[in-house]
Design a protein around this nucleic acid. Structure first.
Lengths: 173, 173
DNA sequence: TATTGTTATACTCTATAACTATA
DNA sequence: TATAGTTATAGAGTATAACAATA
C-alpha cells in the first residue's frame, strides 16, 4: 500500500533535501536535549559559549544564524537558571561579555555525550567517511556568505554570517 | 572585533550542521515562493502532488515528513485557491484522492524556474559534483528509517518515512 | 479495533520594526 | 549616525491528543 513517490522538481531543491534530512535529526536532538531541561537552541548556545567565553551576544547570534532579537530569550532563560553570566563590557558598555558558569559547564559536559550518541545513531546509515564528507560539504555551504539571500533593495546580504573555525582539517580533500 | 569562533562539541552534531545549512536555503526558498503567494510548504506539497496524482493525504504527508494534522491546513489553503481538488476515494471512503488542477499545474510550472534558480545561486559555492554528492548523502540519510527517533515506550520508530524514488542514479558512486 | 482525515492547542523557531543606551 | 541589546508581535513549522466516519 503506497508505492513510492517521485520528487520531480523537488529533486533539484537543496532547501527541500536539507529540510527532509534535518527533520529527524531535529526530533532526535530535541528529545535528547529535553532530558536535561534544554531546548536544542539552548544546548547549542550554551555549548558555543562554553567554547568561546567572553564574546558579545551579537557575535554569538550571528555565528548561529539567529536574529539578535531572538537570541535574547535564549540567553535570559540560561542566565536565570545560573548556567551563564553576563557582564557589562568595560571597553564598550553597550555590550555584554558572556561566560558559562561552572554549573553550566557541568551541564554541557553531562548532556553532550547522550546528545552526540543520539546524533550518531541517526547518522549511522552513513559510513564514517561519508559522514566526514557530508560535514565538509555542509560546512562549505553555510560558511560562504554568497549562500545568503540578497536584499532586493540594497543588494546586501541579509545578514552576515561570521566565518567560523572548524577544528578539523575540512578542506584538504 | 569578531575573531572566528570554535564549534567544539557542536562539530559532531549533524543536527547542528543541517540546521545551519538549512537556514539560508529556507530563507531563499521562502522569498522565492512568496513571489507566487506560496509558502515553502505549499509549493512543496503542490509540486509533490503534481508529480504523484491520486494519492491519499497521509501518503503525501508521510513522504514529506509532515504530521497528518499539520497537513490539513496546507491542503485546505491550496484547495480554496483552486490549485488542487480532493475526491472521496471509491475504494476507501475514509480517504481522499488528490490531484492538482490545471491552474495549479500552471502555477507550479511558473514558480519552479525562479525557485530553482534561487536554490542554485545559494548552492553555487559547491561544484556540480559536490552538489551531486551532497544530494546523494542527504537522500541516503533521510530515506533510511533508522534515522528516525525511537519511541521510548514502544520501541517503534515515531513515524514511518515512506521510501521515495529518486529519478537520478544516486547510488552508483 | 485500527485508520483517515479533522479540530484544537501549545510549543519552537523565525522575521520585522521600533525603542534605549551607548558609541 | 551607527551599533548592542531589548521589546513586542506576527508568522511558519511542529507535536500531541482526541474526535467522527469508515474500515
Amino acid at each position: 500500500m503506497g508505492d513510492q513517490l517521485k520528487f520531480g522538481a523537488l529533486n533539484n531543491l537543496f532547501g527541500f533535501h536539507l529540510r527532509q534530512a534535518y527533520t529527524p535529526f531535529g526530533q532526535a536532538y530535541r528529545e535528547a536535549a529535553a532530558n536535561f531541561e534544554l531546548k536544542p537552541s539552548q544546548y547549542t548556545v550554551l555549548a558555543l559559549i562554553k567554547h568561546n567565553p567572553g564574546r558579545r551576544q551579537s557575535e554569538l547570534a550571528e555565528a548561529l544564524n539567529i536574529e539578535r532579537s531572538n537570541f535574547v530569550p535564549i540567553i535570559e532563560a540560561l542566565e536565570s537558571r545560573g548556567l551563564l553570566i553576563r557582564e557589562k563590557s568595560r571597553e564598550d558598555r553597550r555590550s555584554y561579555s558572556i561566560e558559562v558558569t561552572p554549573k553550566g559547564k557541568a551541564l554541557v559536559t553531562k548532556a553532550t555525550a547522550p546528545i552526540l550518541a543520539e546524533s550518531d545513531r541517526a547518522a549511522a546509515v552513513l559510513s564514517g567517511s561519508e559522514q566526514e564528507t557530508l560535514r565538509k560539504l555542509l560546512y562549505k555551504l553555510y560558511s560562504d556568505k554568497k549562500t545568503r539571500p540578497v536584499n532586493a533593495s540594497t543588494g546586501e546580504r541579509l545578514s552576515e554570517l561570521r566565518y567560523i573555525v572548524i577544528e578539523y582539517n575540512y578542506f584538504t580533500t
